[in-house]
Amino acid sequence: MTTVSSNANTLASADELSPRLEALVQGTRALLERAVLDYKDVVYSNSLGAEAMVLTDIMATYAPEIEIFTLDTGRLPDETLALLDRLERRYQRRIQVFSPDASQIEQYVRENGINGFYLGLEERQSCCHIRKIEPFRRAVAGHKAWVTGVRREQSAERAHGEQIAWDDRYGLWKVSPMLEWKEEDVWAYIKARNLPYNPLHDKGYPSIGCAPCTRAVEPGADPRSGRWWWENPESRECGLQPRRRVIPIKVEPRRAVAP
Rank of each mutant, 00 (worst) to 15 (best):
K132G: 06
A14R: 15
S18C: 05
S155N: 03
Q241F: 13
Y108S: 07
I249M: 11
Q125I: 03
L240P: 08
A52P: 03
R255E: 12
L195A: 09
L37I: 00
W187L: 08
R243G: 05
E122S: 13
R124I: 03
G49D: 06
D38S: 12
I95K: 11
R75V: 03
I133Y: 06
A52W: 01
Y205K: 04
D167G: 09
T56H: 08
G116Q: 10
S235K: 15
R152M: 02
V257W: 07
V54R: 03
V4H: 11
Q107Y: 00
R29W: 02
W181Q: 05
N194M: 03
K191A: 12
G27M: 04
K203V: 00
Q163M: 13
P253A: 10
R224V: 05
Y44G: 04
A60C: 03
E51R: 03
A50P: 01
L11S: 12
S126C: 05
F69T: 08
S18H: 02
W181D: 00
W229G: 07
A60W: 07
E162M: 13
P19I: 03
P206E: 02
Y62H: 15
P64S: 10
E252K: 15
S225D: 09
L17C: 04
P64T: 06
N198D: 14
S176D: 07
G49L: 06
S13Y: 01
N46A: 14
P19V: 04
Y44Q: 10
C127D: 08
N194A: 14
E183D: 14
I130K: 04
V43A: 12
G209A: 11
L87M: 13
G149F: 02
L76D: 13
R255N: 15
P206W: 06
M178Y: 02
V150L: 15
E180R: 12
L240Q: 09
G113K: 09
W228K: 08
R243N: 07
R158T: 08
K144V: 00
Y108L: 10
R244C: 00
Q163P: 00
P100A: 08
T10E: 12
V43K: 12
H129G: 07
E234H: 12
A258M: 12
L81T: 12
E231L: 15
G204A: 11
L71Q: 05
E157K: 04
P100L: 07
Y44N: 03
K40C: 03
G74S: 11
K132R: 10
N7V: 05
C210N: 11
V42T: 04
G120V: 06
E51Q: 14
H201E: 08
A165C: 09
Q92C: 02
E122C: 01
Q125A: 01
A141T: 05
S126T: 13
L17A: 05
Y91N: 07
G161T: 00
R75K: 15
K174H: 12
I114Q: 09
R255C: 01
